[in-house]
């Protein structure tokens, strides 16, 4: 998928652990892992809002569009 999730990069920048972020945005570890590993097929606006609030960033800092090479 050409949409890349840079959540772990932002988490590293903010020095925030997965457990802490999951608690702050109110989702479980499994769903956060799905999001971090790029397995997610969609993200709710409410989840994005909570992530941006917790990490003090913009949606563009989390999601990136990288066109396929072929």
């Amino acid at each position: 998928m050409p949409i890349v999730v840079n959540l772990d990069v932002m988490m590293a920048k903010r020095k925030m652990s997965s457990v802490e972020l999951a608690e702050k945005i109110g989702i479980n570890q499994t769903n956060l892992s799905i999001l971090k590993t790029g397995k997610a097929r969609a993200i709710r606006f409410s989840t994005m809002e909570a992530i941006c609030k917790a990490l003090d960033c913009q949606p563009g800092d989390i999601l990136e569009y990288k066109p396929d090479q072929d």
Binding site: L32, R41, I43, T47
Partner: peptide, 8 residues
Amino acid sequence: KNEADYTV
């Protein structure tokens, strides 16, 4: 279902 399961 897969779509719903992988919507965070």
